[in-house]
């Protein structure tokens, strides 16, 4: 279903993509970079292809692709786009670098 990167974390991120497009590839790469750069080892990333799972878009109320949903910690936040704007991803999602 997706790629689980790390289980020892309080962050749960779900990335909904539509098919294996270049935009999908860009979004996945961007997200991985951000996660690794900002909070390595403490996040769980699930990548879901809405085209491969009928009903999943409806269930998760997905309109745009790609859509990133931060499910944990609360509040749930949604970010759409290929995530090429790192600043917007971080501030928009409220996912600040962990205080270590």
């Amino acid at each position: 279903m997706g790629a689980s990167v790390d289980t020892n974390t309080s962050y749960l991120l779900k990335l909904f993509v539509a098919g294996d497009s270049s935009r999908t590839g860009l979004a996945v790469a961007n997200l991985r970079h951000i996660c690794e750069d900002e909070f390595p080892g403490c996040y769980e990333l699930v990548i879901i292809d809405v085209l491969r799972h009928p009903g999943i878009a409806e269930e998760n109320k997905i309109l745009a692709a790609p859509t990133l949903i931060k499910e944990r910690p609360l509040p749930v936040r949604r970010i759409i786009g290929d995530l090429s704007d790192k600043e917007k991803v971080l501030t928009g999602i409220g996912l600040l670098p962990p205080q270590r």
Binding site: F16, A18, G19, R23, L26, A27, N30, V50, L51, P54, G55, A57, E58, I62, L63, A64, A65, P66, T67, R77, R78, I79, I80, G81, D82, L83, S84, D85, K86, K88, V89, G92, I93
Partner: peptide, 18 residues
Amino acid sequence: LIEAGEYDLDGLFLRLGA
């Protein structure tokens, strides 16, 4: 919704299509 980069509305198309 926070927009960070390019996107399309494939999700909407998919839901309508279903």
